[in-house]
Amino acid sequence: MRQFVRVASWVYALAVYGFIFLPVVVLVLFSLQSTSFPIPPFTGPSLRWYEAVLSDVRLTSALVNSLLVAALSSATAVTLGFLSAWGFARFVLPGSGLLRGLITLPLTVSYLIIGMGLLVLFNWAGVPKSLLAAGIGHVVINLPLCFAIIYSQMGDHQINIERAARDLGAPEWKVLLLITVPVMAPAIFAGFFLSMTFSWDEFVISFLLTRFDTTLPVEIWNLLRSGLNPKTNAVGSLVFAVSIVLVVLFELTLLRRKPA
């Protein structure tokens, strides 16, 4: 019986791994295709489609745009999230539960609807479509995430640590800079990197709120209209690589706080 469970487990697990990796393997493999169609048989390896991507100004500028929007919107989200988490964790505010609920509310609404709302609002207010508009939308989706991560890590122990610093004569801004930020650094980094990956990946808000200058997922979407193309494979593989780097950084910041 036990033996049977083991074998069945292995077979099942391998099948699921296969299912999970199948599209990724196909994506990366055919990005190395030397002919013009990313379908069997495999004719590579060749790097011509990566060259094509890197010499495509639209794609490379979209990549820079994406990184820029991700970095700036994440920095904004994590700053606002941290400050509000600190405020809510340390002080009694009237209606605190309700206000915290308000900040985390966007987590429960799909990106499409958040994007739609901003589109309608900006359209009325006469705000033109731009990367800034998309960045604002990315802060809306990432702020609740950063807030939730950081707020959950502000326990009673940290409260005592801050009280000790105040007791020893530190003014409020020194408590913040010398104690709270360093102690909360892992949660702050985690919030930042997670926001980066989500913003980097986000499509629908950018699609609705940008026009000429746009982000990479939207540019890839435009590329898709030309049908199956190894160039799309190449740029997709590059995007995957960047995501993996972000995830590894995220994992490392999580691991780093274990010994503390």
Binding site: R90, I136, V140
Partner: peptide, 30 residues
């Protein structure tokens, strides 16, 4: 622990207002 340090009652609001404002302006208002 959650009692207000007398540093000032404006401080907590200064901390949470940016996030609340952002949510109101770019989530609730839309």
């Amino acid at each position: 622990g959650r009692a207000l340090p007398r540093a000032g009652r404006a401080l907590p609001w200064a901390l949470v207002t940016p996030a609340l404002g952002w949510t109101l302006l770019f989530f609730v208002l839309p």
